[in-house]
């Protein structure tokens, strides 16, 4: 028993720089916390999908994007679709610009030569005759890429149900 405590105390002090709780208790020492415990408000748990659902909900609310994407558009003429898309597009763009700030990954003219600014394949993707070592000085810029430089989404309020993208609507007569 005392051998056990001795080992525990020895390794505790050696590795953690403190005397283990049970050793202290057995020796009759009472540990005092140097800092009082801070009582924290229960935090709203934000799930992994909440951010994605939030922006989808906003795009549905402002631009009805989910309605548009989920509709079967096969039976409609291009003219009908075009007329509706103008509004959806305009609203979607306004909404995206309000909550997110965009910039290109490479600020160049597409179709002209551009230097490779990053070795991260997630930021710059090499196409065509990619050398064996994956290193190249530059090439023709095919797509400037999109980068979000700032997000300004409203904080989720308490008990917000992000799984409801749009409420059902009932008009009371």
């Amino acid at each position: 028993m005392s051998i056990g405590y001795a080992f525990s105390a020895f390794f505790g002090i050696l590795f953690k720089n403190e005397i283990p709780e049970d050793v202290a208790a057995a020796l009759g020492w009472v540990r005092r916390d140097s800092k009082p415990k801070v009582v924290e408000k229960p935090k709203e748990t934000v799930g992994p999908g909440d951010g994605a659902l939030q922006i989808l909900g906003i795009l549905q609310r402002d631009a009805r994007l989910v309605d548009f994407l989920m509709e079967n558009i096969a039976p409609y003429t291009d003219e009908q679709i075009g007329a509706a898309v103008r509004g959806v597009h305009e609203q979607s763009r306004q909404t995206l610009e309000r909550y997110l700030q965009f910039s290109p990954v490479i600020d160049g003219v597409e179709g002209t030569y551009a230097k490779i600014a990053s070795k991260d394949p997630a930021a710059v993707k090499l196409l065509g005759n990619v050398p064996a070592d994956g290193k190249a000085a530059g090439g023709t810029l095919r797509h400037k890429g999109w980068r979000v430089t700032k997000t300004d989404l409203p904080p989720l309020f308490a008990h917000q149900k992000t799984d409801i993208l749009a409420p059902a609507e009932i008009e009371v007569a």
Partner: peptide
């Protein structure tokens, strides 16, 4: 253009 009120937006 006034979009359809229900979930059928174009229709």
């Amino acid at each position: 253009t006034l979009l359809g009120r229900g979930s059928s937006l174009i229709g």
